[in-house]
Amino acid sequence: MEIFQIWVLPRLNYLIYIFLMLLGLYGMLVKRNYMKKVIGLNILQTAIILFFISTAAKIGATIPIIANHEHHGSHAAVNAVQYINPLPHVLMLTAIVVAVATLGVALAMVIRIYQLFSTIEEDQVLLQLRRETLVADAKESFHD
């Protein structure tokens, strides 16, 4: 019980991030619908972004925009403890925009698969592909 209060409770949010990450992996690997796989991919990405942003947080600090600055040249000392770490924000800001780019490409592939197979269920697509190879093999052996 003591271990729970000292170790687990301050890190409870990390455990939820892990849960979200595994949820995304579950969606990508176990779900057979391609659209669900794309949503799982996005949940995985956002879980990792969430983890990065949480490493930037500081208790008692404010947002990383310097307040009350006069014109530049006034070398007022900026204390690093007062502001939240801006570096993970920068990395993850670009990661979010790349996430929407990958989402667009993934959805384009899903639409293309639907045009070719008229289904977005993975097992039915695999079934159709297997049937096609069987037919092709049979034709080849017939010609031989």
Partner: peptide, 19 residues
């Protein structure tokens, strides 16, 4: 809430909007 205002802004426009 975590103080990452730029990231929150991006997510509001990208994640909740365009996605």
């Amino acid at each position: 809430i975590m103080g990452a205002v730029d990231v929150a802004f991006t997510e509001a426009s990208v994640g909740a909007g365009i996605s």
